[in-house]
Design a protein around this nucleic acid. Structure first.
Length: 430
RNA sequence: GUGAGAGUAGCUCAGUCGGCUAGAGCACCAGGUUGUGGUCCUGGGGGUCGCGGGUUCGAGUCCCGUCUCCCACCCCA
């Protein structure tokens, strides 16, 4: 028989890797909960149309799609947002606002794998729907940083690059760009960090033939602070858009993460549906792709046949995160442990060993033993391999006076205790 | 979809100009005599050298194809 290899771009989670994955996901979960998000989940596949409706038919080639026996076109979810929108739309009027939900879906995209990007991954999603308040944007950014900080990443390690589509649009309008040129400018700004000054100037000349407009573009891409943006603005409308972003930065300051956040005019996000604040989180040293990204989208629900309601949120994938944490040596999932490992010094004690094992397990403790009736040395070796905290040895003294030997594996010390007393409260020795 | 690099044991890799039965470390299993683990010592199992074809007396080694991995580009919801 032929060996079937794993599918490319997928991962096998052997116990060690599984511990890592659980560590990451449980971190996401506890941080979400302490920031007031409620967990939800949807099906792993949806109607194909749910994904193509908003993003266009072209996206179908990036999806793993299938047809069921009823001829329905389905696809495995490549992201969570359409499912979120669908679920929220179904019960929008009944849900208390703001809707503050999180999920950690397993998603699949039919991509060519490369560093930080696989065909199957986990993506932490936090969204706040049904409010225009910049506090929602601030809370989303805070939550993402809260997690990254909780695993040991400092402001010296990572940076939240933050801008606003609304402000950028107002700025461009103020500078007399034609609305149909906005999209070109967005793409140019988005590419800016990846290009040298020369390459950027070349690309700009290609895309924006008008020298006056191009001069303005160069001015825009060089903006370093909100203050500089303010000096360029003329209309009240543009000033109002700037004030919104300024307010967000103030709130982030109050939340104590100002040192993680930085205004960056080149953050526009490719996604057409973003309408307000947009951000991406990067590591400061290496050149990994964004570890998290998000923003506000005013038409999130309307785009899926729902009411006009604004939402803001972000996604964080496990793949880049794992690379980043590995580089920083911050991946430290708790190793699996066995509380008690039972050893019989004489084979005739084995029946009793099984009984005690069961009692310890019923008491909620981890208990293990060796399948082989072999020497104490061999059994101890097995106990070590399983990362055991305490070994309980049943021996001659158990037969004589119901005593057992209990050995602290880390310290190497051992003592004797009445078996009944141990079983009364096994946790006393831990 | 485009381009580059790499595939030898479970993992990391060595393998000279094409030449004996393809190796090391780690991991795994077993021993090192009676009731004490991690260290150490000894031994063992494990390979279609990614796969297919070609050149050759002879291919892990050279050539072609293919698959996979990996990196960059495109894209990035």
């Amino acid at each position: 028989m032929a060996k079937i290899p794993p599918v490319k771009g997928t991962r096998d989670f052997y116990p060690e890797k599984m511990a890592l994955r659980n560590w990451i996901l449980s971190g996401w979960q506890s941080i979400s909960l302490r920031n007031g998000f409620l967990e939800y989940d949807g099906p792993i596949f949806e109607h194909l149309q749910l994904f193509t409706q908003k993003s266009g038919e072209g996206i179908a080639s990036e999806l793993f799609s299938l047809t069921d026996r009823g001829g329905r076109d389905l696809a495995i979810r490549p992201e969570m947002t359409p499912t979120l929108a669908r679920m929220v739309n179904q019960q929008f009027n009944a849900l208390p606002k703001p809707i503050k939900w999180f999920s950690m879906p397993r998603c699949c995209r039919a991509e060519k794998p490369q560093k930080g990007r696989l065909r199957e991954f986990f993506q932490w999603n936090c969204d706040i729907v049904g409010t225009d308040s910049t506090l929602a944007d601030a809370e989303c950014i805070f939550t993402a940083v809260d997690y990254l900080r909780s695993v040991g990443l400092t402001a010296a390690d990572i940076v939240v690059r933050l801008s606003s589509r609304a402000m950028l649009a107002a700025l461009l309008a103020d500078l007399k760009f034609n609305p149909d040129e906005f999209e070109k400018v967005y793409v140019l700004l988005d590419k800016r960090p990846k290009l040298s000054a020369e390459a950027f100037a070349e690309l700009a000349a290609e895309q924006i033939p008008n020298p006056d407009q191009r001069k303005k573009l160069m001015q825009v891409q060089s903006l370093q602070s909100l203050k500089e943006v303010g000096e360029l603005l003329h209309t009240d409308q543009a000033r109002a858009a700037l004030a919104g972003l300024t307010e967000l930065f103030d709130q982030l300051d109050q939340l104590g993460i100002a040192d993680y956040c930085q205004f960056d005019i080149t953050i526009v996000r490719g996604l057409a549906y973003y309408t307000g604040p947009v951000f991406e989180i990067f590591d400061r040293q290496s050149r990994l792709r964004a570890v998290a990204a998000g923003g506000r989208y005013d038409n999130l629900l309307a785009g899926f046949g729902g009411p006009q309601a604004s939402g803001t949120g972000f996604g964080m994938g496990d793949v880049v995160l794992e690379i980043l944490l590995t580089e920083k040596d911050l991946l430290k999932p708790k190793a699996a442990e066995v509380d008690f490992f039972l050893i019989d010094a004489e084979p005739k004690l084995f029946d009793q060993l099984l009984q005690v094992t069961a009692q310890l397990r019923q008491a909620g403790l981890t208990a293990a033993f060796d399948y082989r009736r072999t020497s104490i040395g061999k059994q101890l070796k097995q106990a070590s391999a399983l990362n055991t905290r305490f070994v309980i040895i049943l021996g001659a003294e158990t037969i004589e006076s119901n005593m057992v030997t209990i050995k602290d594996m880390a310290q190497g010390k051992q003592s004797q205790i009445l078996l009944n007393k141990l079983l009364e409260n096994p946790r006393q020795v831990l």
